[in-house]
Structure formats: structure tokens, C-alpha cells
Simulated scan of single mutants.
Amino acid sequence: MRAWVLSQSKPNGGEQAVGQLREFIAEGGFEPGVRLPPERELCETLGMTRNTLRRALDALEREGALWRHVGKGTFVSSAEAAPADPMVELGRQITPFRMMRARLAIEPAIAREAAVNASGKALMTMQLAMERAHSAPDWAEYERQDDLFHRAIAEASDNLLLLTLFDQLNGVRRAVAWGNVVRESQRPSPDHSSFAEHEAIAMEIASRRPEGAYEAMRNHLKSVSERLFGEA
């Protein structure tokens, strides 16, 4: 395998990071079926942050150049060789609006269960995600923390079936084409409505109010839907 030589200028995200990762794979002689090094090693080799690397990996996975196996790693593939992922295929067929309707049907019920079963650790995980979302330097990091917040609620339900259902729902959400979403700022403003909405959900869960948690999550998702589509 040819040694990889770092370029003098480090990528700061987007297409440059994707191009650098693509070049690393080509120059490194990674053939279809070969597993890439772990993320930590890739970050050190490519001079990328973990978030930048993950966005680049996501982009190449959508192209079919990579595929992932949970617990085993990320593998190189051709579009023909990549194993079919039913969640990704479903995400390519569903509209963002239908995706939001599915979230409205499922996530409030998960929040209700979280209010019954949440542990102290789960509540701390939610709080940490909210704090990091507030201080996120850009939309990508905010969205990552938003994702972690919602998954923490699913974990707090203490129900493996609900957590698995959430992960599948989230897998489809990631695959949906959100090309119509335009960001007008580098990061969320301090009065971004989701901050207060997340706090309301967390408070209802921490206070052990199942129906309040259900309504708080439903109100949050309706608010997101209204911002995206003009209607809930």
C-alpha cells in the first residue's frame, strides 16, 4: 500500500473533505470489500475533525462508494457491490414531509415512555446534548447534538424495541433528501425555537409527566415541520 502523504492545507469541511477522503482511498489502494481504518486513525491521518470526517463518510456512502456494517466498520465498495440497506432505500423513496409525519406518529410516544422509565444517567445525557447544542459553532454540530438528544430520549424509554425502532426511523431520516432546507446563518441563533422546545421535553421527562412529555415532543416536531414546510 502506498504511504499517504498529508496535503499542506487541511480541509475545513464540505467538498474538500470528501475529495481528500476519496483521494486517500484511491492512493491507499483500498479495493472493494476492504475495511477502512478506524475513525480516530482516519482523523489523525487526514487532519480532520471527527465531525468533518463523518460528513465525508456519509457523502461517499450515499454515492455507493462505501458501506457500513454496525460493529464491524466501514468498507469500500462499488455501487454494484454495496449491500442493499432497506432503510437507505426507503429514505430515497420518501419525501421530507412524509418523514416528519412519521416522526410525529412515533417520537411523542417514545417520549411518554421515557418519562416513566428515564434513569438519572439518561437525564444527564439529554442535558449534556442540550448544552452542547447551545454552544455549537455551526449547524452541522448543532444537528449532531440534536440527533443525540432525541436518541437519548429513546434510550431513556428503557425499551430495546422502541430504541431499535427509533434508530431505524433515524436511519431513514438521514437518507431522505433535504435539499430544500436552506440555512441563512452559520449557526443557530440564541433564540432558536428548538432550544426552548428541547428544554420543555426534558423537563416533562425529568418531572415524570408522561402525557406532558408526549405533548412537548409533539409540539416540538410540529414546530420543526412548520419551519420546514409551513405546516404541521
Rank of each mutant, 00 (worst) to 15 (best):
S9Y: 02
K10T: 07
P11W: 00
G13S: 06
E15A: 13
E15Q: 11
E15P: 04
Q16W: 06
V18E: 12
G19V: 06
Q20T: 13
L21D: 08
I25R: 00
A26Y: 04
E27D: 02
E27H: 08
G28H: 08
G28R: 08
G28V: 11
G29L: 00
R35I: 11
P37V: 07
E39I: 03
E39N: 12
R40E: 15
C43T: 14
E44F: 04
E44L: 12
G47R: 09
M48E: 03
R50V: 10
N51Q: 04
T52C: 01
L53P: 05
L53V: 00
R54V: 00
R54L: 02
D58N: 08
D58G: 00
A59R: 12
L60R: 12
E61Y: 00
R62K: 15
R62M: 11
A65H: 13
A65P: 07
A65D: 15
A65I: 08
L66R: 02
W67K: 02
W67Q: 06
R68F: 05
R68M: 11
V70S: 13
G71T: 12
G71V: 12
K72A: 14
T74D: 04
T74R: 00
F75D: 08
F75M: 03
F75L: 08
E80F: 11
A81R: 13
A82V: 11
P83H: 11
A84P: 02
D85G: 02
M87Q: 11
M87P: 03
G91M: 10
R92N: 15
Q93R: 15
T95C: 13
F97S: 11
A105M: 14
A105C: 07
I106A: 10
I106D: 03
P108S: 08
P108H: 06
P108F: 01
I110V: 13
A111F: 06
E113F: 07
A114S: 04
A114C: 03
A115K: 04
A115M: 03
V116Y: 09
N117E: 10
K121S: 13
K121A: 15
L123R: 05
L123D: 07
M124W: 06
T125D: 15
M126F: 08
M126C: 15
E131R: 05
R132M: 06
H134F: 06
S135T: 13
A136M: 07
A136K: 07
A136F: 00
P137K: 01
D138E: 14
